[in-house]
């Protein structure tokens, strides 16, 4: 797996629902091959941000760049073809289809770069997620939450995206599974993928990340290296229960 990751840059994003802005001028950069984690209280606009990056919401203002390329005018499926993989917060698999079919759908309608044989890519991805290998012919809806999350990530990784966007991947997982998940996320980053993720588990998320971003009421309250943010007393007070 020798994909060269691409950076993601957002400048002055204003976006929301029905003309009501939720994001009020958000800017950030996720450098190529890095893990960037967005944290923030519920309702602060994290999911709105990731949906804007994906093109599910059109920004009122601002631009989104993948490396140098301006992807703001692209539709979600065009962005998928430009090399952005996405795992939504909920409903992240096709529940009535088998795991293998879910993985096939990862590439069926997306041009792979560089074009690789399905079987070869499947092997590479299954090596990242050995847990789902024995489940290939199981219906995805019958899997546990953690396994479903893995299927979803595997399926998004199938076309070898430059950037993988994950919305609260650890939500609903046991602490053990959440830790396992972040180990995998780090491995994915090492294969040459930029990771853009949203986490409500601040300690775990920032712990595995290079860069952090604190979003409050649709504005970036703080950004910097993940360890700086984790060490910031205000953040500790806000999210880590004063510890």
């Amino acid at each position: 797996m020798s994909v060269t990751a691409k950076s993601l840059t957002a400048t002055g994003l204003v976006a929301g629902y029905g003309g009501q802005p939720v994001l009020r001028g958000v800017s950030f950069t996720a450098h190529a091959g890095e893990i960037l984690t967005v944290v923030g209280p519920n309702g602060s606009g994290k999911s709105t941000l990731i949906k804007t990056v994906l093109g599910l919401i059109r920004p009122i203002e601002g631009r989104i760049l993948l490396d140098e390329e301006d992807i703001t005018p692209l539709s979600p499926s065009q962005r998928a073809n430009a090399g952005i993989g996405y795992v939504p917060q909920e409903a992240n698999v096709f529940p009535n289809m088998t795991v293998l079919e879910n993985l096939r759908l990862g590439v069926d309608f997306i041009q792979q770069r560089p074009a690789k044989r399905f079987d070869r890519r499947l092997e590479e991805v299954l090596d990242l997620f050995p847990e789902i290998r024995p489940k290939l012919s199981t219906r995805a809806g019958l899997l546990s939450g953690g396994q479903r999350q893995m299927v979803a990530m595997a399926s998004a990784l199938m076309p070898e995206p430059f950037l993988l966007a994950l919305d609260e991947p650890s939500a609903g997982l046991s602490p053990r599974n959440a830790e396992l998940l972040f180990k995998i996320i780090s491995r994915i980053a090492r294969t040459g993928v930029t990771l853009f993720l949203i986490e409500q588990n601040t300690r775990l998320g920032l712990g595995a990340s290079d860069t952090g971003l604190v979003l409050v009421s649709g504005e970036v309250k703080l950004s910097g290296t993940a360890s700086d943010i984790l060490g910031n007393p205000a953040i500790r007070r806000l999210y880590l229960g004063g510890a």
Binding site: L56, P88, F94, L105, D108, F109
Partner: peptide, 19 residues
């Protein structure tokens, strides 16, 4: 697969590039 995918989860199908 595309037909079943849209039936199963239309939002995810669009993200996976299915028109």
């Amino acid at each position: 697969r595309a037909m079943r995918a849209v039936a199963d989860n239309a939002a995810l199908a669009s993200v996976r590039g299915i028109a």
